[in-house]
């Protein structure tokens, strides 16, 4: 009798399924990972945003690509010392006025900085940078003496 009552009561509460709740939570978390966002400030004392970078290496040069949407070329400052590359600047949100009612804002603004140590010395005089479609692309040629050389060896 008691058991029967209990099952009946349990059946009445069919609105709540733990499985469904977990699936919903999983969806929410997946949505979070789906969002393309810049890395946030990596340290407590580091107040700068570190934008995402790619570093590629070819035989003669390193190519660094930095995601900087909404940043114009005069807002970026690039410096090279030995094999250390520093990219910094300021990002402002376009047409930001307080006349607007903001519904959602996932866009970051403020100062950003990124410092990269490249594996080998580079030729600082030959560094080239260009900005296109919100991506900063820097080409850093390796110094002559560190370029990989192929030496043919005659086998006797």
């Amino acid at each position: 009798m008691a058991r029967e009552l209990m099952t009946r009561r349990m059946n009445g509460r069919n609105d709540w399924h733990p499985g469904r709740e977990i699936a919903r939570l999983q969806d929410e978390i997946n949505r979070l990972f789906d969002l393309d966002t810049a890395e946030s400030a990596p340290g407590i004392f580091d107040r700068n945003v570190a934008p995402a970078v790619d570093v590629r290496e070819t035989n003669d040069e390193y190519i660094v690509d930095v995601d900087l949407p909404g940043v114009s070329r005069d807002q970026v400052d690039i410096s090279v010392a030995d094999n250390v590359l520093t990219i910094k600047g300021e990002k402002t949100v376009k047409d930001a006025t307080d006349k607007h009612h903001v519904y959602r804002c996932e866009i970051w603004s403020g100062s950003f900085q990124r410092t990269l140590s490249l594996p080998k010395a580079i030729n600082a005089d030959e560094v080239k940078a260009r900005m296109a479609d919100g991506v900063l692309s820097i080409t850093l040629p390796k110094r002559e003496e560190v370029k990989a050389r192929s030496i043919s060896v005659n086998v006797q």
Partner: peptide, 26 residues
């Protein structure tokens, strides 16, 4: 595909949608 970071604002005439898509040509 990933969801781009966006900002949605409204003033008296229009809703303004700003979407960050680095590396995407016009």
């Amino acid at each position: 595909t990933v969801r781009p970071a966006s900002m949605i604002r409204q003033d008296k005439d229009a809703v303004i949608l700003q979407v960050e898509m680095p590396g995407v040509a016009k």
